[in-house]
Design a protein around this nucleic acid. Structure first.
Lengths: 207, 207, 207, 207
DNA sequence: CATGAATGAGCATTCATTCAT
DNA sequence: CATGAATGAATGCTCATTCAT
């Protein structure tokens, strides 16, 4: 039985909806559209339907908003990837599942992709304090797939799993970005993603 | 024998030295260190040894500085790649040469890499006006290598050359970025680059 | 035997304890520590153990809190001074008693002194509306002592009693402030106060 | 022969007048009128006839403005006091000269007095970093007068010179403040100051 | 060409106050 | 009475850009 406070989610989305969440969603939108630096806190507040000051009741500041937003998205991605690969034994199939799930997410919620593709790198370099645990987990997850595949004798054991993970992410991410940017002439991202994945898969299997 | 561009460094260091160039070099440094948005025009001027206003005699503004800087770096990369692949017939070897030349550039001048890795994406997305011809040429160059290889029967013809180019760039770029960020524990970028290239090469060759 | 005002401390600490008083006490603390402008209503509420909004049930606003706090402290001072001088006939002894009582108060409750020394002047100047009756009564009380002493032939009649009152206050107040500020190397305020009082007493007696 | 740039001070006061000085003068005015916390940087800029940002070319920030303003005023006071007492041998006469010079300054430039009377105390307490050397010099100067007088056998040697200095300042300062506040019914500050000084002088002389 | 002082729009953040519960 | 989440006006400060010299 659902708790009374969670009944009628539609109404909840209006006024009483979790403001913290509405702010984060607004931030994702705005950061995706304008980029972190060009975005203003006021615009996020406006889009979330709250007062400027309210944001500071939920987040420490603009930076914190970005960080929490990364965590939010990366957690979603990580969960999706884990569930997409849960019952897949072969490393190559797991990689395929990963790429497919990510492409799915990009197509469904391009805002996530735009933030990750563009802002993630900024943050890595300029938010000195921030460890970016969500992204680390993502890379570790990919690396584990590769490592497990190597142990199973499925993948070429000579490659550093973390390096492979990183470049696989880079290849997919660049593809996602180019898809996001090509607002007019959208190619079939799922198909393109499969192609790129096949390159990696073929390149990774033990000779 | 000094390289042609470095003739008469004394004159270059004087007042009459090419200010436009000094400004651009300073901008690369500063943008690499702080990022485009965190960098200030004043800091670029200071580093270039010119007055703030002088920058506006050579460039239209901060944005223009970034654009010209992209062109500058991409031209250098493109030239380097072209010369590195000029007499190489096989597509796979050309890709290897490309990756090696780029890794070389990153190791030699990390500032270039940091700007490209981090700021290029910003610009793609937020500098609406800017077509980024240098980067287009880069991608086209890579795509041509792939296409030529396909025509020669060397590479699998089923893949879209532009897509391959894009993901190859993405894979290498991500590797370069991770190398740039890992200030302390620098891995062997050249070796890592070779590994990743081999994955692509194996994945691309015609079955 | 507990003092009448401190009967039943348990009840006082509860929800039903005089909230208005707890708020005022908290305000004295906070204003003394941070100063009126640097203090926040939220901090006062926190320290008083009430909600922010509750303060507005007892006081009109932050300004009102300062005003009521002045009245509170000045009333305490005035009462103390009156009782300290009640049975003292000579003006010089009354002044001595006044200074002693004030020094006592400062040493016992430095927070009072810090508020009076620092904030009183602000209020005189910037809270246009506020007449500061407590401080007026204080000055009048001092002036009366001087005037009575003059009538009794004890003190030099040529001085304006109000002016004397004002500068006597100023001299003592500055001493109190310097004592409050000297957190580390606390001098003997009572002794210093006696010294300064003697200067005034000697200076005031009829030649 | 005056330097060319200093000819025509009237014109200099308009546009080309030392902006740093004009800003400081404006700050004195505004801080005297509204108090440090109620004053806005924008108002100071407006009053100085410069842009908001210009203030930050001359001062580190609002705090710095207050500090530099203190130094400015205290230096003026200290210089005036030194010149007023230069050829005065007797300590009592020196104290009289000090009080007279200060009263003069207050009457001539009440803004100085208002800032010193009200803001000095704030700063002592809340600008943790700031040592307030100008005020220290002032107190030291007064203390030296007293000490010298004690050594000459002119003043009672039993009093701590620094304490005397502090309370003398307090007595005068309170008088100055009350004069500044009494906009309508202005009493004769010079006369009042003399009266108060006589109290101190009589109280201080060796018995 | 070169300068750098001056500009002022723009923005993140704070906090006194309100009001629905 | 009491709460505390929400508000939004207010403000110190930055920095790209201009322009008189």
């Amino acid at each position: 039985m659902p708790a009374p406070t969670e009944i009628e989610p539609e109404e909840a989305d209006r006024k009483r909806g979790d403001k913290g969440r509405r702010i984060l969603d607004a931030a994702i939108e705005v950061f995706a559209e304008k980029g972190f630096f060009n975005a203003t806190v006021a615009e996020v507040a406006r889009r979330a339907g709250v007062a400027d000051g309210t944001i500071y009741l939920y987040y420490k500041g603009k930076d914190d908003l970005l960080i929490r937003l990364f965590e939010q998205i990366m957690q979603m991605i990580n969960e999706k990837l884990e569930s997409a690969t849960r019952d897949v034994p072969k490393a190559t199939d797991r990689l395929r599942a990963v790429a497919a799930a990510q492409a799915e997410l990009v197509v469904e919620t391009p805002a996530f992709a735009e933030v990750i593709c563009v802002e993630l790198r900024q943050s890595s370099k300029f938010m000195k304090e921030y460890e970016n645990p969500g992204f680390k987990r993502y890379l570790a997850f990919l690396a584990e797939i590769v490592e497990a595949g190597q142990k199973r004798g499925e993948l070429d054991p000579s490659m550093d799993p973390h390096r492979v993970a990183r470049s696989f992410f880079g290849a997919l991410d660049e593809l996602h970005l180019s898809w996001c940017l090509a607002r007019k002439t959208r190619f079939d991202l799922r198909q393109a993603s499969r192609e790129v994945t096949e390159i990696f898969v073929r390149g990774l299997v033990a000779p």
